[in-house]
Design a protein around this nucleic acid. Structure first.
Lengths: 200, 200
DNA sequence: CAGGCAATTGACCGGTCGACCAGTTAATTA
DNA sequence: TAATTAACTGGTCGACCGGTCAATTGCCTG
């Protein structure tokens, strides 16, 4: 454990956070040891305690960091996409699906947090969901989507479907006749969009 | 740890399995100790090793037992419901939603299995999904449902939505405007059924 | 009723865990 | 440059982990 050329506590902190994130996401908080994290981040175990206090506190910091980055990425995506009206929802689903496809760690992170009943992670995206729901409400008022559905539930439906698709991938692989990511996404979008079309 | 009135290895085994299931579901396999399981099941730690060999083997046995009971319950439900045609799908969704609502442990059990990439649990319900998909295919051929959607994907969509609803309950609680179990179920069914209605 | 065998026990093992602490080293400040 | 503070290290602690083992107990069979 040779000393770094120059001391940089911020860099050290982020190195620890990165290594811890990778291990926690993969094995879950209970299965990871401080020794593993120390080895993976090239730092002594004592130094982790110095910076974060305890394993519990480190896990909390890792979660906060990860969810913050997730929320920022999603918000950037959401604000960049200013396509108006009817295609906005379809694009949102597509964007969210692609995001999870490219960030499998995020899905696992949420799953660990849910299992330990950590509801703090829900606060980070409450604003995002609120914003999405608002846009859906506007589309409803413009007559582009049926208006007898709670807008928040519209968001919840596609978030649940997409998230669980990636969470249970290995499980679903055994199901007869199941298709690829692309085939499933296409089918889901067909059903979802048709289900939300304005009623005659 | 007084000896039981009469020796009954089968009862002992099932007592251990029950106690282990409760603890594993609650805390996850890595966080539970053999000593906890022993205390909860009123049995010595050595006896658990005698009957199951190791913690790993016990966890496997617990999963097999739980998923088997799950699959049996679902199959019974599915066969009992012989309502023909268009209402069959809606009833399936309702039945699945109610089942998860009444068996929160099942949701967590699947989540733990998914996180450790255990795909063996997917084998237990492959047959169920196949059966469900077959019924949907029949409804498609009878013109009761649109036929341009993969029937397995139809099952996957509602399974994902319902499962994740209960898995992420605490998380969603922070989302603005979100409704109760009943309100969400109603909205989902509206979108889902309308999305699957035959195309004009 | 004798004797074999599985169920069951409590004591014990080596190993690893998270945490702590005294000491050293480098940057910062006055 | 002297003093102060914070980053960083290696060693160590008690607790607890999963697993083993010899000994005991009760059931079943011949």
């Amino acid at each position: 454990m040779s000393q770094p050329a120059t001391r940089d506590p911020d860099l050290t902190r982020s190195r620890i956070l990165d290594a811890a994130l990778a291990l926690f996401v993969e094995q879950g908080p209970a299965a990871v040891t401080m020794r593993e994290i120390a080895a993976a981040s090239g730092v002594t175990k004592s130094l982790i305690h110095h910076h974060f206090g305890s394993k519990e506190a480190l896990w909390t910091a890792v979660k906060e960091d990860a969810f913050l980055r997730y929320a920022e990425g999603q918000r950037a995506d959401l604000e960049a996409a200013s396509a108006p009206g009817s295609e906005l929802l379809e694009n949102s689903v597509l964007r969210y699906f692609r995001f999870l496809q490219q960030h499998p760690g995020v899905v696992r992170m949420f799953a660990w947090a849910h299992l330990e009943k950590d509801d703090s992670c829900g606060e980070v995206d409450a604003a995002l969901v609120g914003l999405g729901a608002q846009r859906i409400r506007e589309a409803q008022q413009a007559g582009l989507l049926r208006d007898d559905i709670n807008p928040t539930h519209v968001v919840t439906i596609f978030v649940n479907t997409c998230t669980h698709w990636f969470e249970a991938r290995a499980h679903h692989a055994h199901w007869p006749g199941i298709g690829s990511d692309e085939e499933f996404l296409e089918d889901f979008l067909k059903v979802f969009m048709a289900g939300l079309a304005p009623r005659p």
